[in-house]
Design a protein around this nucleic acid. Structure first.
Lengths: 192, 192
DNA sequence: CAAATAAAAGTGAATGTTCATTCTCTTTTT
DNA sequence: AAAAAGAGAATGAACATTCACTTTTATTTG
């Protein structure tokens, strides 16, 4: 039991090291040798925990997405009004990105790289199912436009990445005012 | 003169090859050797046209951004009503992304990689100045919300990348209906 | 319980590629 | 005949992965 625990910790150390390196210099910076060094482990050890480098990055992707979803849906109670629920989730999501810039930047980098396999992507998306259900509920109640979930995602969730991205690059600050304006924009784009 | 022309053509061949390779397998796939081979040129020749690989990618970034801006602002006449002008530019922009998936995907990949220097990024952004001016005009006329241009960009232009991205991955189709809905969402998010 | 043994986890060095870049030499253009 | 453009081969570093080996942990047996 203590053994298993140690294994999990080592696995996490490897994932954390990968996250850190990808964040500081792009995915190409996270070489197996560097990850191993940062996690204080032999390069060979990585292959005890992961099939290969691509597998390691894909697993990291899933683990980060899972964390993201956990934060997004914390204290989520399905029977509140749709707008209120959505506001809560939306704020949780952007807060996650503000609080976890490394994980957030990693996810952004993954959006457009072929290292992440389509299967992994789909699995990652499935963590957000409650959100898609909420949109469906909103559509049925006639308070959210009857458009594809892709459009809803594109105009309400996806913009968060841009905003936190530029805040990270110190080009702007996202405080309470901007947060309120941003949610208003998101909601206006999809409300009936 | 014919000499210079030939030089430009060779430079363009190198940029085109880079674009193609980046598109097919990520930035790491575009190695100097492969780019040279695809452009039917010796690896050494690349260093006659560019300082190094990073410089080549940065120049490609600028060249693509310039093309993008050219398409965005074609037939743009500043004295039409703000909403009409904006609709025209917005449609031009998304059409560019649909018509030029390689260039579009390249730009997306560049959004989150440290290969592109901050200076290059800023220069690339400056091509879109007329758009920022239009927003300012809209704000002055009281028809666009008085919020930061970052927010406007995040909720109207940035979502296009997501939509064309998933269309590219064959997860959805963006036809006339979706295009109309999408522009409506974009406009609703920022109109007063 | 303790010694013996089997299995699992972990290592550093080596493998064979591929990488970006530079070298020396040749061809083409002025 | 000078200079500019281009070539292929060479360089050394970095890469992902595997190798033969050691150490640690778990299980069996006397």
């Amino acid at each position: 039991m203590a053994k298993l625990q140690k294994s999990i910790e080592k696995r996490n150390a490897l994932l954390r090291a990968t996250l850190c390196l990808v964040n500081s210099g792009g995915i190409q910076e996270a070489s197996v040798a560097k990850v191993a060094k940062m996690a204080q482990v032999s390069p060979a050890t990585i292959y005890l925990y992961f099939e290969n480098k691509q597998d390691m990055v894909n697993q990291l992707y899933l683990s980060v997405k899972e964390h993201y979803a956990t934060v997004a849906f914390k204290n989520y109670i399905a029977d509140k009004p749709v707008k209120k629920s959505y506001e809560q989730i939306w704020l949780n999501m952007i807060q996650f990105k503000k609080d976890n810039p490394e994980e957030s930047s990693f996810l952004s980098q993954c959006d457009n790289t072929p290292i992440i396999e389509e299967e992994t992507r789909q699995k990652g998306l499935s963590f957000l199912q409650p959100l898609f259900d909420l949109w469906e509920k909103g559509k049925n109640e006639g308070i959210i436009k009857d458009v594809s979930p892709y459009i809803i995602y594109a105009f309400t969730i996806y913009p968060q990445s841009f905003l936190t991205n530029i805040e990270q690059r110190s080009l702007c600050k996202i405080n309470k005012v901007e947060l309120t304006q941003a949610f208003q924009a998101a909601w206006d784009s999809i409300k009936v």
